[in-house]
Write a protein that binds this DNA or RNA. Structure first.
Length: 609
RNA sequence: GCCGGCGUAGCUCAGUGGUAGAGCAACUGAUUCGUAAUCAGUAGGUCGUAGGUUCAACUCCUAUCGCCGGCUCCA
């Protein structure tokens, strides 16, 4: 028996969670095998907030099965068995698992590089192929909960055997488990699909699956974000264009999408020509560039286009606003000389940073460098990556390097935003592209009066408006800051008699350009307040006889509650100031269980099984 | 596309072989009220769609569409 080499030093929280979760997966595997004696085990790694294990089972699992598995797990935990590590000679290990019908394990052993140890872990009645490490005793895994069952493929291969995956979570303390489960509940409440319906923002219809229908309030939200996008991009020197969305396939043959992305495009035939709806803005923005002659003095040329995009995503992958077939990217392409990469990247990082700080998102930057299948000249890559790195360093923002994670056409920076519930979303992106300029034979006239090739920078700040709105709705729990709220104020008359004054107040605010509703129904004020609160309207204005006589409104805000009276003009001035400053007047409820451990970086490749 | 679950009134949901139910919303009337739900009445569904089994189907079977949890994909 080998002692754990890390035992002598203090483990980090991430390491402890890794062991705990991995161990809990083993316990679950034993429980499943007790119920289904022939069940073969695939892989069971820890993941960011729990673990899963994939099984090949004779029948689909039900919720009742999960209850039964949990019960058995509790017994194994209570037995407080020790996790014992053993190293086996490769042949012996192979025979061991073959005899037990554990073909997946044999497959794994066959893939373990020669020279590496093959180890197994025993706990109670389970013996599993496993690199470890593990908790020392099963009792550590007391605070677990099984969450869901789903399908999965062996090695993620669609053509391979279909397995059943059970997800679960486990935490060092009962309190943390409870917090985590509360977090899940909170996330459910804030689900943008639920809030989108409740707040009247958007809806879906089966006759256009994967495409949102925006209601008036959602449209206002969308347009307000668009206005902000337009304004901030004008300030940053971008020129906006409007291109078609349907193209002859020749465009995509030139860009390379026809070969590599055709299955994801909507195509149609008309008058003997084959057309496709564009899945991204880059190819046709190249056409724009080519429509004019460019001098090196014109660069960087910043061209933005919020074109309507369509991608024919597989039916089973669609989900709310985060996975759609029709969407708009806040896209732009910057054409630069190779020597301008660094400064332009710096500009873009600044723009992205300013935008996300408006909503109190935390940004994380990942620098993805040259992959193995890269195209183009190595030297070009090296110089560009060096520039990207300098721009990142100059931004003063911390970043991580994902070596080899870049695209084949260029290195990139991915931005992840961490929302108020501690979840990370990939949104903004900055990608260098050496290939498109080649394919479209883009040139500018250089200093030496000879054509030279520009570099293209693809970049998006929000990502897509649809996805960003989904993230924003969940981040804010549907309570938007005043500048963004579809309805900024609702005037509520105390009695029918005051309705006239309520409309006057609304008119004053509307003249300032504010979005105002009047609730003139014959309902009690408590009822009206309640409804305005559930709609998360930033300003709720109560007017009664007293207020009318004094020429004021009684102000209640979503973020601060009841505030007292003020005149409609003072109120309009306050609200306009907030609109202009894009004030974040939202009380953000933050829950972040991951704050210390950061992203659990778990290597699921190789031997993390 | 794959595995599993689900689809009943505008919304949230109950109804498991015998000709559809609640709450909220809507509409009508009463009430005129000071910061998170006033009362009463009325109306509203060919139970996702198409077939099939049955004397009889929301209920069972098949197909199909959509949604949900995942997988896969993500130039």
């Amino acid at each position: 028996m080998n002692e754990d080499p890390n035992k002598t030093r203090e483990l980090t929280r991430a390491e402890r969670l890794y062991r705990l979760r991995h161990s809990c997966a083993h316990i679950m595997a034993q429980a499943v095998q007790e119920i289904f004696p022939g069940a073969s085990l695939a892989i069971g790694p820890p993941i960011q907030d729990g673990f899963y294990y994939d099984f090949d089972l004779p029948r689909p699992l039900t919720d009742e099965d999960l209850t039964e598995i949990s019960k058995r797990m509790n017994k194994i935990v209570a037995g407080n068995h020790r996790f014992v590590r053993k190293v086996l000679p490769r042949e012996e290990a192979r025979r061991f698992f073959e005899e037990r019908g554990q073909g997946f394990k044999v497959d794994i052993i066959n893939r373990i590089p020669e020279g590496e140890e093959v180890s197994i872990y025993e706990s109670d009645r389970l013996v599993d192929l496993c690199a470890g490490p593990h908790a020392r005793y099963t009792k550590k895994c007391k605070n677990f909960k099984l969450l869901s069952v789903s399908g999965a493929y062996w090695r993620g291969d669609e053509t391979g055997p279909q397995l059943q995956r059970i997800y679960g979570t486990v935490w060092p303390t009962k309190k943390e488990l409870e917090q985590y489960l509360e977090l899940r509940e909170e996330a459910k409440k804030r689900d943008h699909r639920k809030l989108g319906k409740e707040l009247g923002l958007f809806w879906f219809h089966p006759w256009s699956p994967g495409s949102a229908f925006w209601k008036p309030k959602g449209t206002t939200l969308y347009q307000t974000l668009e206005e902000h996008w337009r304004k901030s991009h004008k300030e940053a020197g971008y020129l906006e264009i409007r291109n078609p969305i349907i193209y002859n396939k020749a465009l995509f043959e030139t860009s390379g999408h026809w070969d590599h992305y055709k299955e994801n495009m909507f195509t149609m035939e008309s008058h003997g020509q084959e057309f496709a709806m564009k899945p991204m803005n880059c190819p046709d923005t190249m056409l724009y560039y080519k429509s004019e002659l460019h001098s090196y003095r014109d660069l960087p040329l910043r061209v933005s286009e919020g074109g309507l995009l369509h991608r024919n995503e597989k039916p089973g992958t669609l989900s709310g606003l985060t996975r759609v077939r029709q969407f708009t990217q806040d896209d732009a392409h910057v054409f630069v000389r190779p020597d301008q990469i660094e400064s332009e990247i710096g500009e873009i990082i600044g723009l992205i940073d300013r935008t996300y700080s408006l909503f109190e998102f935390e940004l994380k930057l990942f620098f993805a460098t040259r992959p193995d299948n890269y195209m183009g000249e190595l030297e070009k890559w090296d110089r560009a990556e060096a520039q990207l790195r300098r721009a990142l360093e100059a931004s003063g923002k911390p970043f991580k390097v994902n070596a080899g994670d870049g695209t084949f056409y260029g290195p990139k920076i991915d931005f992840y935003v961490r929302d108020s519930l501690g979840r990370d979303w990939q949104t903004a992106t900055v990608q260098l592209d050496f290939q498109l300029p080649e394919r479209f034979e883009l040139t500018y006239i250089g200093k030496g009066n000879r054509p030279e090739r520009p570099v293209v920078i693809h970049r998006a700040v929000y990502g897509s408006f649809e996805r960003f709105i989904a993230v924003l709705v969940e981040h804010l729990g549907g309570a938007f800051p005043t500048w963004l709220a579809p309805v900024q104020a609702r005037v509520m008359a105390l009695t029918d008699e005051i309705n006239g004054y309520a409309r006057e107040v609304a008119a004053i605010l509307r003249q300032s350009g504010l979005r105002v509703e009047v609730d003139d129904r014959s309902e009690k004020i408590g009822y009206k307040i309640r409804e305005a609160e559930t709609q998360k309207i930033p300003y709720m204005l109560v007017v009664g006889g007293r207020d009318r006589d004094a020429g004021v409104v009684d102000v209640r805000t979503y973020s601060e509650g009841r505030r007292g009276t003020m005149t409609p003009r003072d109120l309009a001035a306050e609200m306009l100031q907030k609109v202009q400053d894009q004030t974040f007047d939202v009380k953000l409820k933050k829950v972040d269980l991951w704050k210390d451990e950061d992203v659990l970086e778990i290597d699921m490749e190789g031997r993390g099984f």
